[in-house]
Design a protein around this nucleic acid. Structure first.
Lengths: 245, 245
DNA sequence: TAGTGGTCTAGACCACTTA
DNA sequence: AAGTGGTCTAGACCACTAT
């Protein structure tokens, strides 16, 4: 038994307490994405429990996609890759028929007072303002989808000062690099609505044509909301698949 | 080590061979949905392996949703309940605001020669015909969605003879009871299209209004396709949520 | 060859359900 | 009280990766 007091409930099974301890290390940046965590042998020594218990704790984190085992090499902190995002079900093939990441253009960037909807999504205090980004994503200069993005100014204020050219195609590594904010997971909601005039213009479709709307709230490891994003794409390019049982 | 030869590859880990053995028992109906499987102690004896190995094999089937543990009671074969179906994301509340299962009406039933699309989805032989059902699902006599259903006539021919009044709201238990065909899992695909005239009439919406289309291929335990279904509902009543990480 | 995670065993004790 | 799955331990050996 380790001498340190566990932060989580002592009445929980040992392996769940261990899980919470390990999760805290990832959240604190003590175990960094892409790097190996201590070996199972080391963990048994530092926590003073049997290897089977360590393995069970690690199993739960692997199942949740936070850790990745690799036989002979070690166990690594996994960088969330969002391959399961609904956004990937928009047709994203170029003229050669290959799937690829669309290019990004930031069309607007502002410091705003949030609407009630945004304030609620990001769980903001009354006076807190937000960084707003408007962005389109294109493939072969054809718009695939358009995005409205809101971020708490308290954590992401630096984004207002940076050169727009520095914003890459992938925002989450950029957030991590520039603002030290790591996205750990997200919740997405899909709905369908008719295109309003601005969305129709951006996407190059007829007004009132159906648009798939994906709302995303991206969370940190401690599950506080870091980003609220609404993405819109032409519905006829959307095809989502799921396995059920 | 059991004297019986395993059907699966001997080079696989023991727990995976056990998993395959257990899956075969479920598929064969030897272990029936809703009933307990033998206790872990009995399994260790009949297979001649350690209890930890049994537990690991059971774990994989629990993770896949085929078995369900219940401490103190036993481990049970789970009847797939399709709670994760995309269909549940259509607004299904009655006038009291409670969520409930819509009522079903069979509008048509025919023996048909399948179209190429249906033949492919059900992986049918060239001459095999299909049972076709057209069905609407209503809540407070308001249509929620309409369904076209195709089934291989070789397995589901009996459905042509039964009284339409015998068809309940839930088809899968009905298939099992009347035709001995058990649905184990399914694949669903979501897309959006404008309502054609017949769908618009059935759903009570304007022509060309967006419709969410859910295609489902339902599979048996041995993963052969048993049912092909296309469900359509008004897009403005659809709201899908997913967690990603 | 050394070190990692993966598999498998054997057994103790606990928590929960049923009768 | 008896029987079930749940937790935890301790240790052996295997398969894979790096050097």
């Amino acid at each position: 038994m380790p001498s340190s007091s566990f932060s989580s409930d002592q009445r929980l099974p040992l392996y769940q307490q261990l899980r919470d301890e390990m999760l805290a290390k990832i959240a604190a940046g003590e175990w960094r994405p892409g790097e190996p965590i201590p070996t199972e042998q080391e963990l048994t020594k530092s926590y003073g429990v049997a290897i089977g218990t360590i393995r069970k704790a690690v199993d739960t984190l692997v199942a949740d996609g936070l850790l990745q085992r690799s036989q002979g090499r070690g166990t690594f902190v996994r960088r969330p890759d969002f391959t399961s995002s609904l956004l990937r079900f928009f047709r994203q093939v170029n003229s050669q028929g290959e799937k690829q990441i669309p290019d990004s253009q930031i069309l607007a960037r502002q410091l705003l007072t949030p609407t009630e909807q945004v304030r609620k999504a990001l769980q903001l205090e009354a006076e807190e303002s937000v960084v707003y980004l408007q962005r389109t994503r294109t493939l072969d200069s054809r718009a695939v989808f358009s995005e409205d993005i809101w971020l708490p100014a308290s954590r992401f204020g630096k984004l207002l000062e940076l050169d727009l050219a520095a914003f890459g195609n992938l925002l989450y590594p950029f957030y991590e690099q520039e603002c030290g904010q790591m996205i750990a997971s997200a919740q997405e909601t899909l709905s369908v609505e008719p295109a309003n005039s601005s969305a129709a213009a951006l996407l190059g479709i007829a007004g009132n044509a159906p648009v798939v709307v994906i709302e995303r709230i991206a969370l940190s490891y401690d599950r506080s909301p870091l980003e609220y994003r609404i993405s819109r794409g032409a519905a006829d390019t959307f095809h989502y698949q799921v396995e059920i049982s």
